[in-house]
Nucleic acid binder design. Structure first.
Lengths: 236, 236
DNA sequence: CGCTATGTTGATCCATATCAATAAGTGTGG
DNA sequence: CCACACTTATTGATATGGATCAACATAGCG
């Protein structure tokens, strides 16, 4: 079951922002303890409240981060290749705040948290990169909170579509990255409400057929959505 | 206008978690460039989207972090002594995502962001402490998001009161830390809704007179609120 | 003191959730 | 390859949490 990462994965991981400043030695020693595994879809990789034993890296596929309370569940984020997740818990040696499950067949690297913390203590370049990654994560969650607190669900949907459009390269037609059920949960609405909201955006120049989104009136949609870099730009 | 921090402040700052691992030399050099200022209440210290010129530290008083979009405004957090804010923006050299205003007369230290970034690059102990602080901040915001997405406003209020009770030392009677207007905004509700929600908690053993909260039935309140460390414990 | 901002209460409206039924995919095994 | 089961998406009807609007009370504050 335990498999060292092969060279090809190794290179993908090395290219990650978070390993940009690490010494080759320290990187090698992290890889020595690392696992790589292929998971089928819908596998729960981690469960909230569990101790954070591994830093996870998604090489291929995608992973849903979600949370539960009192029989309710909500999708918090989707992790796509190549990026890490559960970094904060690993660093703080604190329990996971979110659960994670594969959305599709996914290739995941697991690096023991103790190894991460050890290298973090002795490799200043790595520590700096971790700070950058965490600062990025923090800012993303803050933006998300602003989205939730300052916008209605229709506005959240409109801005979400504009963000996806940019990720898809700015074309007027693009595909939804995941199923509407979970999109609804991510946007803090019910599936029924999402269904109706999609229709509610037709007057602003949006058409959705299945998973295909077509922006028929970019100007109108932007006028309605009022996208703002301090909420919608996930790169800064 | 520019004032070096006097010795007494200096000591308070030095004791901050974030300066625990820093060398005396580097700390001294940060203090050399630092300002200390007393601000009256309701002064806007920073404005979202502005470049992050200073790391701020609240010595006394309190500061509200808030955000706006499309003529709406929401309170994101309250910073109380002695702690820093806007660390992520400082580290990333990115624009502020939130604005900040004093709630009361407050004594604030300002350390030029460039100085912070410089020391951060050369002082590994400081870098590690920054990581810890950021990881903490990140986890707090994640908890906040879970609170928002998984709970109704009544449940958020109930859990907020339980958290405040703990902060106040666990006594059945304690004071609300700030005005209801802003508490409502922080909890993502209107003042009217908060007013009614407070009444809505009477059946669960809560009485509020002015700013004095009395928990008359701890068990009932907890049964209703279902507090959870993965949402409500801000220390882990 | 009065003035202004904050808090409360009531009436109403609206966004969104919930419940229910149907339709449309999606996957599985015969 | 199709039939069946099962999940997901849509649509309609209704309920409800919370917002809004308006009036009044209260409390800080110059």
């Amino acid at each position: 079951m335990r498999l060292r990462p092969p060279e090809s994965d190794f290179l993908d991981i090395r290219k990650l922002e978070i390993f940009s400043g690490i010494s080759d030695d320290h990187f090698a020693s992290l890889m020595t303890g690392a696992y790589v595994q292929n998971f089928p879809p819908q596998i729960e990789l981690i469960t909230e409240s569990d101790p954070s034993d591994f830093l996870h890296i998604v090489l291929t596929g995608s992973v849903d981060l979600f949370s539960s309370w009192n029989d309710r569940e909500t999708s918090m984020a989707t992790v796509r290749p190549v990026s890490t997740f559960i970094l904060a818990a690993t660093i703080k040696d604190a329990p996971y705040l979110m659960s994670a499950r594969t959305l599709e067949k996914s290739r995941i690297v697991l690096i023991p948290s103790t190894d991460i913390r050890t290298v973090f203590e002795i490799d200043a370049g790595f520590a700096r990169a971790v700070v950058n990654e965490l600062a990025q994560c923090y800012r993303t969650v803050v933006k998300n909170t602003k989205d939730l607190k300052l916008r209605t669900s229709l506005e959240r949907l409109a801005n979400y579509l504009l963000r996806q459009q940019i990720r898809a390269g700015g074309t007027s037609e693009f595909e939804l990255m995941y199923e509407k059920r979970r999109l609804a949960s991510f946007l803090a609405m019910t599936p029924e409400n999402l269904s109706r909201s999609i229709k509610g955006l037709v007057p602003y120049g949006v058409n959705v057929e299945g998973t295909t989104v077509t922006i028929t009136n970019q100007a109108d949609l932007e006028l309605f959505a009022k996208p703002n870099p301090l909420i919608d730009d996930y790169t800064t």
